[in-house]
């Protein structure tokens, strides 16, 4: 294929366009990362490398606020991703194994639709929903909202994995004296496991990074890391924001990479 005339690499301008796209995508992140190491109180003047702003995140005047927010983010992401993944696993099992029931196509569409809906719409809708049922905003509302919007993210890698699982495995297991439950736990679940772990990590990271929905449904006084960062930024960008953003970025990259690698892993070889 590489020698084919239609290989995109032979198109004029392929290389510069590729570089331009990558620069547009990654330059801002690179700038933040580099300036997080700046030994200066100003965010624009470069005064040499230091880790003082990383130290500041943990010990500085705003450290308590960030620690509480990070703890909230972490616990919410953990619980929301576990619940969302559980629901997504059951949904994927029903969808792929349940045969063709009425409204199967519709259900499939409905479960992935939230990925396409503008987040602000989901945020407003969730807020209205909570007000309508008179639910006091706070930690719990964030958790519930995160669980809900994480479901489609967890669902995707799981259902992708299940498409590749032969319909006959479950029947073969039952033919060999496994109950429906044993067929699920001994055969289907291990085969689905890479998809589930991948979905869990994806849901975790999506929850950890979410800002818009969280900002709408959180009550006064409860902050997650993204809303806390936003709060600080409103009072002017300090270099410590760059340090904390870089840490969040690094953490996300690690989790996304693991999620990707696991979803590609194969326990059948």
């Amino acid at each position: 294929m590489a020698s084919s005339k239609n290989d995109v690499r032979h198109y004029t301008g392929f290389f510069p366009i590729t570089v331009l796209c990558l620069v547009i995508l990654y330059a801002p992140l690179l700038v933040v990362t580099i300036y997080s190491l700046n030994d200066s109180n100003s965010i624009t003047n470069w005064e040499g490398i230091s880790f003082r702003w990383y130290v500041d995140v943990f010990t500085g005047p705003e450290s308590d606020k960030f620690k509480t927010a990070a703890w909230n983010s972490f616990t919410i992401a953990l619980m929301a991703s576990v619940m969302a993944t559980t629901i997504a696993t059951l949904a994927a099992t029903a969808m792929v194994r349940g045969g063709s029931f009425r409204g199967r196509g519709l259900s499939l569409g409905l479960i992935s639709l939230p990925l396409m809906v503008p987040e602000i719409v989901t945020a407003v809708a969730t807020l209205i929903f909570f007000s309508m049922i008179d639910f006091t905003r706070g930690y719990l509302t964030i958790l519930v909202a995160h669980t809900a919007f994480c479901i489609p993210f967890a669902y995707l890698p799981i259902s992708a994995r299940m498409q590749g699982i032969d319909d006959n495995f479950e029947q073969a297991a039952m033919d060999l004296y496994a109950s429906k439950r044993q067929a699920f736990t001994k055969i289907l679940l291990p085969l689905m496991a890479p998809g589930i772990v991948s979905g869990l990590l994806l849901a975790f990271i999506v929850s950890l990074d979410d800002f818009i929905i969280t900002n709408f449904v959180k009550g006064a006084g409860v902050e997650t890391l993204p809303t806390a960062i936003f709060g600080s930024v409103k009072q002017g960008i300090k270099p410590n924001i760059m340090a904390i953003s870089t840490m969040l970025l690094g953490f996300s990259i690690v989790l996304v990479t693991i999620s990707f690698l696991i979803s590609k892993s194969d326990n059948t070889k």
Partner: peptide, 20 residues
């Protein structure tokens, strides 16, 4: 009787060996 209670076993056309 459900399949797992029947003392009958099947060799499936595509074998359906558990890949993991």
């Amino acid at each position: 009787l459900p399949p797992h209670k029947r003392p009958v076993n099947t060799v499936f056309q595509n074998y359906a060996l558990f890949p993991h």
